[in-house]
Design a protein around this nucleic acid. Structure first.
Length: 489
RNA sequence: GGUCUCGUGGCCGAGUGGCUAGGCACCGGUCUGCAAAACCGUUUACAGCGGUUCGAAUCCGCUCGAGACCUCCA
C-alpha cells in the first residue's frame, strides 16, 4: 500500500500524504442528506466527490469502510428553541408520519444516486436508529464537564471547552469573534452562551419524534449524530471525514468539540470539504430557493433548463472541475460537458475497431502514470480527464491513419480507459444499454436498405430513410467505408 | 461588521516561479451526390497597479470586483 496520495486537509489547510491509521483498512465518513426534500444538483457534488474518493482508495487496494449517514431527526430549522425539526415540519405539512417522509425521500435519494452511478456506502446509518449511542456520548461529555443541563435539555459548554481546547480549530474562527457577531436569537435564554449548541433537546408536547433519556423525553442535537455514528462504525479515531464546505461551521467544528470533550481526542485525521455548485455565481441552496432538483435535470422539467441532461452528463460535469473549486451551473457548460463526454465514449468505441499497426509512433504508455499522478494530487479529476482527452486525439488520429498504434498500444489504452473512466471516475456509456443490441440491429437493417437505394442512385429514397431515422434521434454519418450512426445526435 | 476564499481567452475549467492544460464554441481544412455529423488543425488569457526575481498567471503589497461562512443549507 505504498502510495503517494496527497489529500488536502482542511484542518491544516495543506496537502498531506495519506497514511491511514490501520492500513490496509481505511475509514471514510461523509455527512449525508437530511431527507425532507428531493436531492438537488448541490447534493450530487459531495456524493460524486466522495464516490471518487471511495473508488480510488479501493482501487489502490485499501479495504475501505465508507459510512454515509441519513439525517432523519434533530436537524432543526434554526438554532432557536422553537426551531422546528425539518422532518417533523414536512410531516406536519403533508399529514404524514415523520418516518413516512424519511422513507419517501430516502428512496428518492437512493434512486438519484443510482442514476449517477454513485456506489452505495458500506453502511448508511440513520440518526433515529442511534439514539442510544448519542445518549452515551452526551453522558461522556457531561462526565467530562463540558456540558450542562437546563430544563431537560443538554447544551455543549463552548466557553468551558475553549479553555482547554480550541473551538474554531477547523473553521479558523476565534471564539471572541463569535461572541461579538453571533446574533441574539430569541429563545436562547436556556443557553449560558450564544455559541453553545444543543446535545439533547426536551420535546415540546406536540413534538412527535421523541425518545426517553436521562434528562427528558426529547431528541438529539444535529451535530451529535455524526460523532456517535462515526465512532460506532469507524472507531473513536478514523481516517477521513468529508462533507460540503457549508458544513464546516458549525457542524464539523462541533463534531470535533464533541469527540474531543467526550473521548479526549479528535475524531479523524483528514478533513475533506467539497466546494459548492453555484448558479449565476450564487450558491445553489434550499434557503435561497435557487436549486434545481436532480429529477428536474434528468427530465428537463425546469424553467432554467434548455433541455434534459443525463445523469452521466452531470457526473462528467462535476468531475471536470476540482472538488475544492466552486462550479457554476449553466446550460452552456452542461452542453459542453455532454458533447465532450460523448466524444470520449465515441473514441473508446473506436478502439474496438482500430486496426493495429506493426510499429507505433506515439507513446501511449505515459498516460497511466499521468492519470495516477493527477489522482494522487488531491483527486485531481479534471486533470485525469484532460490526459484522457489527449489519448482521444491519438485514437482518432490513428483511426484517420495519421498515427500508428500497435496491438499492445490499443490494449493499453483500453485498459487505461477501463481503469480510469469506468472504475475510478465511475462513468458509464449511457448509449450502451440492454436495448442497444436490438436498436443496433434495426438501424443497421434500415441502413442496408439505404445502401441499396444509394446503389440504385435513388437518393430521394435514401434521404427519406435518413430523415426517418433522424426523427427518432438517430444521426447517420456517411463516410468512405460506409455509414455509421449515433443516437441522440 | 468579523473570518475566509476566489478573480484565467466567447463559455466552463486545470495549472503555483521558466516548458501547448483540457472541453465546448468560433474559424480553416479533410471527408461527402448534397447536407449534417464526425475527424484534423488553429486563434484569443491569466482583474488593475506597484514590488521581489535573470524570469510571475503563479510569491508579496495595495486597489477594484465576486462569493462562502458567521442562523438551516451538500
Amino acid at each position: 500500500m505504498d502510495t503517494k496520495l496527497q489529500i488536502y486537509n482542511t484542518i491544516n489547510r495543506k496537502k498531506e500524504l495519506f497514511e491511514p491509521l490501520n492500513a490496509p483498512f481505511a475509514g471514510l465518513y461523509v455527512c449525508g442528506p437530511t431527507v425532507y426534500g428531493d436531492a438537488h444538483l448541490g447534493h450530487a457534488r459531495p456524493a460524486i466527490t466522495f464516490d471518487l474518493v471511495f473508488r480510488y482508495l479501493q482501487h489502490l487496494g485499501y479495504k475501505v469502510r465508507y459510512v454515509r449517514n441519513i439525517t432523519d431527526v434533530g436537524h432543526l430549522e434554526n438554532d432557536a428553541d422553537e426551531g422546528e425539526d425539518k422532518i417533523a415540519k414536512k410531516a406536519r405539512l403533508e399529514q404524514l408520519e415523520p418516518m413516512e417522509v424519511v422513507q419517501y425521500f430516502t428512496d428518492r435519494y437512493h434512486a438519484s444516486m443510482d442514476k449517477l452511478n454513485v456506489k452505495h456506502p458500506s453502511i448508511e446509518p440513520r440518526a433515529s436508529g442511534h439514539i442510544i449511542e448519542q445518549i452515551e456520548v452526551i453522558k461522556e461529555i457531561l462526565k467530562a464537564g463540558y456540558a450542562y443541563e437546563v430544563n431537560g435539555s443538554v447544551y455543549f459548554d463552548v466557553r468551558k471547552y475553549n479553555e482547554n481546547y480550541m473551538y474554531g480549530k477547523l473553521s479558523g474562527r476565534v471564539l471572541d469573534d463569535l461572541l461579538a457577531t453571533t446574533r441574539d436569537l430569541d429563545g436562547q435564554n436556556e443557553k449560558h452562551f450564544s455559541a453553545d449548541f444543543a446535545l439533547w433537546k426536551k420535546a415540546q408536547p406536540e413534538h412527535i419524534m421523541r425518545w426517553p433519556s436521562p434528562w427528558s423525553d426529547g431528541f438529539p442535537g444535529w451535530h451529535l449524530e455524526c460523532s456517535a455514528m462515526s465512532r460506532k462504525y469507524l472507531g473513536e479515531t478514523f481516517d477521513i471525514h468529508g462533507g460540503g464546505m457549508d458544513l464546516l461551521f458549525p457542524h464539523h467544528e462541533s463534531e470535533i468539540a464533541q469527540t474531543q470533550a467526550a473521548f479526549g481526542h479528535e475524531p479523524c485525521k483528514y478533513w475533506m470539504h467539497n466546494n459548492m455548485i453555484t448558479i449565476n455565481g450564487q450558491k445553489m441552496g434550499k434557503s435561497l430557493g435557487n436549486f434545481i432538483t436532480l429529477d428536474d435535470i434528468f427530465t428537463g422539467n425546469h424553467e432554467a433548463l434548455e433541455k434534459a441532461y443525463s445523469p452521466m452528463t452531470i457526473r462528467f460535469f462535476i468531475l471536470q472541475a476540482h472538488y475544492r473549486s466552486t462550479l457554476d451551473f449553466s446550460n452552456e457548460a452542461l452542453q459542453a460537458a455532454e458533447k465532450g463526454m460523448k466524444r470520449m465514449f465515441q473514441a473508446i468505441k473506436t478502439l474496438d475497431t482500430l486496426q493495429a499497426s506493426e510499429k507505433s509512433n506515439v507513446d501511449v504508455f505515459q498516460y497511466r502514470k499521468l492519470c495516477y499522478e493527477a489522482l494522487n494530487d488531491d483527486f485531481n479529476s479534471p486533470m485525469v480527464i484532460a490526459h484522457l482527452f489527449d489519448t482521444v486525439r491519438i485514437i482518432n488520429s490513428a483511426n484517420d491513419k495519421k498515427e500508428n498504434l500497435t496491438a499492445a498500444d490499443i490494449a493499453e489504452l483500453k485498459d487505461v480507459f477501463n481503469t480510469f473512466i469506468f472504475q475510478v471516475l465511475g462513468l458509464e456509456d449511457e448509449t450502451s444499454g440492454n436495448q442497444a443490441e436490438l436498436i443496433d440491429g434495426l438501424v443497421n437493417m434500415v441502413l442496408e436498405l439505404r445502401v441499396q437505394a444509394k446503389a440504385n442512385k435513388d437518393y430521394a429514397a435514401s434521404d427519406r430513410l435518413r430523415d426517418a431515422l433522424n426523427a427518432f434521434g438517430i444521426t447517420v454519418k456517411d463516410s468512405k467505408e460506409g455509414s455509421t450512426w449515433s443516437f441522440e445526435g
